[in-house]
Design a protein around this nucleic acid. Structure first.
Lengths: 194, 194
DNA sequence: AAAAACATACCGACTAGTCGGTTTTAATCC
DNA sequence: GGATTAAAACCGACTAGTCGGTATGTTTTT
């Protein structure tokens, strides 16, 4: 039967997210993950060849979420797509509270581990290209003011990453969903032609 | 004699920055640091009570650098202060290439370790307050357009952090000094009254 | 019965920190 | 200015424990 197997795998991944978020990739040991998931080490290595493979599986799942979100807004006009994201951002802050530290963990591991870097930087560059083309499209359509799409894309991504980081490090320092919503509004209204 | 002692301590800290940057806090072992510095473990623990204390010492040094930079621009007008930072940013990207990954390490450790969090988040809040008051001053002086200083400060810090992160993760993805310079110019010109 | 799923004991590599002993340094005395 | 001395600086073997991964055996599913 696959059901039990599937459940075990899900439990491992959920426990891993929890422990990686709380303690970090290195500190969260395979034994810890097994204990949290309520399974044995044998079961763990039956499902994942190594600890790193588990990490890559988690990364993959996260990237797919983003990909499908981008796909969903593929046929919209440029301002529409941005409006969508303006709506999506506060949602990320509200719901992702648990998994958020994982982002940081992804970035950190990516900066040191070539395999993880390859798996995460390639998609990141895709997103940047997507943003760039989206802004370029908006400029060509005449709905955006004339900006350097490349630069504007970097700035938008930077602001988003920076807000995520700040909310991670100082969760109670501000009402981050509000700051995020207002920031995106400011950025978009700065782009839009009046 | 203190000279040799001082040299040893400096060597330890320099080696630590190098190894923490390249391999991360956890992966860089005390033995590694000692080997890199060309000293023994006894010497290490003569100078630093623990690995964490060494880390905190490095963090402290970095924070002092920022503090003195802020102090230096204390008596200027708001636009002048920002112009200064516009000039300083590219410099950071050019010179800090080696130590830059340490920032990420600081942030990550801070999000997990209470002692390090206390040591790094308090100053961070100071900087945010400083930026906020600087913008508020500019608005009051009439040289800046009317923005919410709190929000503008968050955005500026976010953009800076995001640019740093991106340059870390994808050093060859763009000419980051150029992007940083243009971004700050854009932000400041958005703030300035024409 | 064959295969997939799971459990447990174990291994070798590695790590932060300790400890008893040795060398270097700087101040003091003759 | 050479000998004395105590403290500071340094050394490196060792400890006690952790970790990722494996080998081998048992249970469950098909």
């Amino acid at each position: 039967m696959q059901q039990r197997s599937e459940e075990t795998q899900t439990k491992i991944m959920e426990s891993a997210i929890k422990l990686f978020s709380n303690s970090g990739y290195n500190k969260a040991s395979v034994d810890d993950i097994c204990a949290e998931a309520g399974i044995s080490k044998g079961a763990f290595y039956h499902h994942f060849k190594s600890k790193q493979k588990l990490f890559l599986a988690l990364l993959d799942g996260w990237l797919q979420t983003i990909d499908s979100a981008i796909d969903a807004s593929k046929d919209m006009t440029a301002p529409e797509s941005f409006t969508r994201m303006t709506e999506a951002f506060p949602y990320i802050f509200e719901t992702a509270g648990d998994g958020l530290p994982m982002f940081l963990e992804f970035w950190l591991q990516a900066s040191r581990d070539k395999k993880i870097w390859d798996a995460s930087i390639a998609p990141y560059r895709r997103y940047h290209k997507y943003f760039t083309s989206l802004i370029k499209k908006g400029v060509d359509e005449g709905s955006f003011v004339e900006v350097d799409p490349e630069l504007a894309s970097r700035m938008i991504v930077s602001t988003a990453m920076g807000l995520l980081l700040q909310s991670l490090l100082d969760p109670k320092g501000a009402k981050w969903e509000k700051v995020a919503r207002e920031s995106t509004t400011m950025l978009v209204s700065g782009l839009l032609k009046k």
